[in-house]
Amino acid sequence: MSTTGLFVGRFQPFHKGHLATVKFALGKVDLLVIVVGSAQKSHEPRNPFTAGERIRMVKESLDSEKEVDADRILIIPVPDVDVHSLWTRHVDMLVPKYDVVFANDPFTLMLFRERGIKTIEAPLVDRSEMRATEIRNRMITGSKWEGLVPAPVARIIKEINGVERVKAIAERSHH
């Protein structure tokens, strides 16, 4: 019997901690559905990148990893809904049937657990550094951030002038 897992995240941006979770999850399921959450959001402090940009970051990162079998991965963008308790049902409509949910966010895991769905909190590598918040802060302050993301992500962010965008959004939100 084949098993399907969901890995839910916003991936703002996709970083090496997320990559480690993908590898961890692939060790436990046959098919991994990567849910790009808050898909409708972009150009705001916590969500600077569009769903399309994030999908590219995830896909190109995974394509560049020899030990990741891309045939076992689907990437599906899922927008938010206003009612938290309905969000998991919304996910159900947009993804294939699944057996287990992986996430780094305790709130996301709680929403699925409350419905009796099996959840696994992904073991996080280097949580202090491996956080999208930290990466975005480093972009704002002009510190080194590239080492925290897979090379394809750094390339895409440069290509779309992502650092300038993150800085501009941060400045606007302080006014």
Rank of each mutant, 00 (worst) to 15 (best):
P77G: 11
E121L: 13
S128G: 09
I120N: 08
R113K: 14
V8P: 07
G5L: 10
G27H: 11
V149S: 01
A103R: 00
R127N: 09
V100T: 06
H90P: 03
P77W: 02
S2I: 06
S85E: 13
V78W: 04
V29T: 11
V58C: 01
A51K: 02
F107W: 12
L74K: 14
S128A: 10
D30G: 15
N104E: 10
P13Q: 03
V22K: 12
T88C: 05
Q40L: 06
R113L: 12
V153T: 13
I160G: 05
R115L: 07
R115E: 06
A103T: 01
K97D: 03
S61F: 04
R136E: 00
V36T: 01
L124E: 15
M110R: 15
E146R: 15
A122L: 09
R89L: 04
K41V: 09
A151F: 09
N161K: 05
P152V: 03
L94S: 11
K97N: 07
R165W: 07
I135P: 03
S64D: 04
G9V: 08
I169V: 06
K118A: 14
P152N: 03
F102D: 02
T141K: 14
N161M: 04
P48V: 01
E60M: 02
Y98P: 07
W87A: 00
V83K: 11
